[in-house]
Design a protein around this nucleic acid. Structure first.
Lengths: 191, 191, 191, 191
DNA sequence: AATGAATGAGCATTCATTCAT
DNA sequence: TATGAATGAATGCTCATTCAT
């Protein structure tokens, strides 16, 4: 009920509604109403609906990046580090399903200006990029084109989070959890 | 003057505009105008904008399914068959980039009713499903959960097509082409 | 199924739909469909929707007029003649409830050009007019202004048909039937 | 600049246009334009054209009911009371010809949901109902079925207002005025 | 006479955005 | 900072009518 909360209430409500109904099917009026503020208030905090979306996208991306950064280990054992990173990334998706769903929906959508999307994606993929370059340097990974590997890795990550979000109980089962990492790892490894 | 032309012109134009501008940013009036028909004609053939989208989605899905079905080989060598299937699927995406882009954008989007999306996805994934079951039966593939493998496979397919669509010249380079298949194959293989 | 029936099928269907849904809520397409003809056929027989309505209105009016004319008696006893006329008119409404309902709805509605309405009403009211003039000449009726009496009479007729259409079983009960005539008669009679 | 003015301006304009052109022939845009507001403003105050109509209908009905209620006398002489009521009701129609015309046009029209119409009519007819029950109890009126009497009475009222609205100068002539009441009264009286 | 695809003006309604309070 | 009435351009869709077959 305190004042600074209004901006946050708008963001929270927008996240929920954008995910459940889609960007275009969500009117600014409905966001304001559900957030318990006046329509004018939304535009007081965000100059336009697009800017609200952009703010949401970038701040969620940042949260993800911070979470992953915090969980990076450098034990010297690349596979162990990668496994840790992989699980952390999926764990984040499970902890924040709405935000993950938001990414799945809007990472490819024209609702978000293309340069914003790319900027966000690059930042997320850079973690993976580093890891893969290390793997290739060490001769652990096959010498596939780096961008191809990154795209592949990103594709597998999206697939894994979708799977565990759709079947949350499987995340508790070690064989499933480990299977997801094995596929990811073996795809890159020198055979 | 021929009859089916107008309906087809509407579908073709809608595909182009939905991909380039997005579903919501594309007005029915603009589709009709660019297709060279009256607004009423669009609604004569499709009862609503949503139905037009649905028709487009399902017919493109069917084209893809038909193309893949036609290219399925059963040589007895699973790896060779899989490689052939993989290249065919990517080749389709390269041959029909607009349709592939359409899938990338709308497979997850709320612009298409969820049951339509799932129906389409199941039909596409069933090819892969068969192949993977064979691989597991033959002991070639690791015994990962089947749905997880399917999701992973789908994710890698989307990543590969995105890569080759963004870098079409790489599809002519065998190392790239083969690298994409190797990652896909090794992810599943019994290590 | 024979050819001349098509025009009649259109008229019958239009009557039903105009009464049940209203003139504006009934599309020419829906009339044609329900009548089992093509949209073009409707416009082949009637130059416009308004003309179809006009035709319907005037032909039903004529049917009513013919029925009443046929039932006019001139026994020399004005009250008996009037009673006979009153019952005949209400009987017609009960025999053709759709047509009666049509009149109730469209006699005052802007769906029908005002001159058509007036023309029809005058023709219907002329029966009553004659009767009332006789009554006044004979000194049976009060010497109220003729037009006022006609309007009043018309109003009572509409009310009576509405009552017996809403409660059809009451038309079989003599007290109700006679009460309706008594009110009509006593309103005009010299007291 | 005052607040309630815009809503009222919309209602006033809608009344005028609905009466002069009909409900369907009156576009919301034309109402807004003539009322001097933006199209959006109409929909800000009324969720739909139908709701605007409903609001208009019910509020006019209420005005009428209030006016009649205010004029009810209970002098002990039923005939005098009835005469007073009859003249008041017609006077209202003459004072507010647009509103009376509105009733004449829309009381039977499918432009207004049937339950709204009936609700309104019941409320109007209840005045008459009371009066008639008193008349029957006192043995003044014939023992006709009550509903039939009510319908008849309503029919005569509509006829009378139509007559005096079409011939306003006649309302100043006592013989006409009294004739209208005489017909109404004699219709019900024990003969 | 009969058909039904095609037309396009017209409509109700939505919604991001503004601004006076 | 917050409000919510007001705005008006834009949209999806309808439907009477035409006309080539």
């Amino acid at each position: 009920m305190s004042k600074p909360d209004k901006k946050q209430a708008i963001l929270d409500t927008a996240l929920t509604l954008f995910v459940s109904q889609g960007f275009y099917a969500t009117s600014t009026a409905s966001i304001a109403k559900k957030a318990g503020v006046a329509t004018g208030t939304l535009f007081h905090h965000f100059p336009s609906k697009d800017e609200l979306m952009k703010h949401l996208f970038l701040s969620i991306k940042q949260e993800f990046a911070d979470a992953i950064t915090a969980s990076i280990k450098d034990s010297g054992d690349l596979k162990q580090d990668a496994e840790h990173l992989w699980y952390s990334a999926i764990q984040w998706a499970i902890d924040y399903p709405l935000k993950q769903e938001f990414f799945q929906q809007y990472s490819m959508s024209p609702s978000i200006a293309i340069e914003i999307r790319e900027q966000a994606m690059n930042s997320i993929l850079s973690f993976m990029g580093n890891l893969m370059q290390q793997g290739q340097t060490q001769g652990l990974f096959a010498s596939y084109p780096l961008t191809l590997m990154q795209d592949n890795c990103h594709g597998q990550y999206l697939a894994a989070t979708r799977y565990f979000l759709d079947n949350p109980e499987k995340w508790q089962v070690d064989t499933h959890k480990q299977a997801s990492f094995s596929m990811f790892w073996n795809a890159m490894v020198q055979s």
